[in-house]
């Protein structure tokens, strides 16, 4: 089509077909966003539960460190 005009190229021939543009305008976002979402979903790392549990067992308790603060905090 474009070659008949003597200029342009493949993309220019696409620009002249508005229905093809409409289809591409729908298909490309749908496919790319779906793939992006799936990649994001699959690549989500796992929370290191053991690390936090061991840290909480190892760290000194706040209640032991600041016993004087307890009565103030119990006020409603």
């Amino acid at each position: 089509m474009a070659e008949q005009q003597g200029n342009g190229g493949f993309l220019h021939s696409l620009y002249e077909n508005m229905y093809l543009l409409l289809v591409l305008g729908l298909v490309i976002p749908i496919v790319s966003y779906t793939v992006w979402g799936l990649v994001d979903f699959i690549s989500e790392p796992q929370m290191d539960v053991d690390k936090y549990m061991s840290e909480l067992k190892a760290a000194p308790a706040q209640a032991e460190a600041q016993p004087a603060a307890q009565p103030e905090q119990t006020k409603p």
Binding site: Q46, L56, A61, Q62, Q66, A69
Partner: peptide, 20 residues
């Protein structure tokens, strides 16, 4: 994270640093 596991961490955290 498994919600049950997260709740275990949060419970341990709460018990550790509870002040009131």
């Amino acid at each position: 994270v498994d919600p049950v596991k997260f709740n275990e961490i949060a419970t341990a955290f709460t018990e550790k640093y509870k002040v009131g």
